[in-house]
Amino acid sequence: MNPIPAALALTTALTLPGLALARPVTLTANLKDYGGEGAYLAVYVTDAQGAYAGSLWMAGGKSKYYEHLSDWYRATGGDMAQIAGITGASVGSGRQLTITLDLADTLMDAGYVLHIDAAVEDMRDSPSEITVPLTTAGAGQAVPGRRYIADFSYSM
């Protein structure tokens, strides 16, 4: 399990009304040994109503493949502005993705849900591979994925 150094997102990824405070949050996803090309991962948040709220990270650089991250693509219409400045490399089989970013306090315990869509070339698309509510209590607890992600957790 080699951790992939990810760029530190210095500014809050999500600009929400009433934003007052933010705290650093570390997201960690360990990938299974699914034996294929590097996985594209879209990390984003929906609100209590299930509506798209914003993107946190995009792992994978070629926009032509983004439509395979179908829930994210559906929510954003493939809008590249949503991930401007928060893209990185795709994540190889068996590797780890770690991102540290400043997350607004208002996102915690307010019904927001973090999603990860995953896709791998010539393999099945896995939209919403991870769906986990953002709660203070849930921090540090590993959640299993369906196809490509062995487990995911966020910590404050």
Partner: peptide, 16 residues
Amino acid sequence: ASTFALLPEGPGAPRF
């Protein structure tokens, strides 16, 4: 050229 998006890109998937 296609992989590096050097060709004129099509409309892609329609908006949901």
